[in-house]
């Protein structure tokens, strides 16, 4: 079985704070990590590898620093790593990124499964999975939590509007793994060292994949940032329990917490 896993390197959101009053975003700690949902996807692939044997290929479309993300993937147990990186690819928009990734995946030897994280923790983007599935002509299972191979088919527990259901699909297929799926294992220390010292990461450029600069031009623009209002703290109310319960529920609804 061959499994391709697309991972994205992001700035750790834990190191970023948003000051609503000053309407500014501060990067307190600049650390790059593998997007958590992508790491869950990697773990799902590795569990299939442990149980049934598989070749796991990690790909990443990103800056040169994404090499570290791929080394981490190798340390976790991936067999091969491909970095798609090029000055020409800097600043491409999400739709184009999906096209580039799809072409890279097609360039690999045929895969039985393509795994990606459902959501990017930095941008909140969650359309790459569906786009990839369409471009690659694959059936899709989104918001996957657990995967298991049952004969020829893959059985997946996935969330549908927050509720877990079971589905089955025959490979080849694309699975988008939820950040609520089991987190990745710890990489073995020796594998960490070997991932850097002995293993290699192939690097593909936009040219290698046959893209022209024109094709990579971004089509989506930003019109700026909007900041939610500052939290208003210290608002105290008093009254009968039923009335208080009503106020609490109103706040929860307003904040979309229920």
């Amino acid at each position: 079985m061959r499994i391709a896993v697309a991972v994205k390197q992001i700035l750790d959101p834990e190191g970023i704070t948003v000051n609503r009053r000053r309407e500014r975003i501060f990067i307190n700690r600049e650390e790059r990590i593998i997007n958590p949902a992508d790491k869950c996807a990697l773990e799902a692939a590795l569990r299939l590898k442990d149980a049934h044997g598989a070749e796991v290929i990690a790909l990443s479309l990103g800056r040169p620093s994404a090499d570290d993300a791929l080394r981490e993937a190798l340390a976790l147990g991936a067999d091969q790593a491909v970095l798609i990186s090029d000055k020409a690819l800097a600043g491409i928009d999400a739709p184009t990124a999906a096209v580039v990734l799809a072409r890279a995946i097609e360039r690999l030897a045929p895969c039985d499964l393509v795994l990606v994280g459902q959501t990017a923790a930095d941008t909140g983007g969650d359309q790459t999975a569906g786009r990839l599935a369409e471009l690659l002509g694959l059936p899709q299972v989104l918001h996957a939590v657990t995967l298991s191979l049952d004969g020829e088919r893959l059985k997946v527990v996935r969330l549908w509007d927050g509720r877990p259901i079971m589905v089955a699909v025959a490979p080849p297929a694309l699975i988008a793994v939820s950040p609520l799926a089991p987190p990745a294992r710890y990489p073995h220390g020796a594998r960490i060292l070997n991932a850097y010292r002995q293993m290699g990461v192939s690097v593909w450029t936009a040219g290698d994949l046959g893209f022209t600069a024109e094709e990579l031009r971004p089509n989506i623009e930003s019109r700026g940032q909007v900041f939610p209002p500052e939290r208003e703290l210290g608002n105290v109310i008093e009254g009968a329990p039923e009335q208080m319960a009503g106020e609490i529920l109103a706040l929860l609804r307003q904040r979309r917490l229920i």
């Binding site: 340390a75 220390g189 850097y196």
Partner: peptide, 9 residues
């Protein structure tokens, strides 16, 4: 780099 990843793990 490998020691940074090791430290993080």
């Amino acid at each position: 780099k490998e020691y940074e990843l090791l430290r993080r793990m």
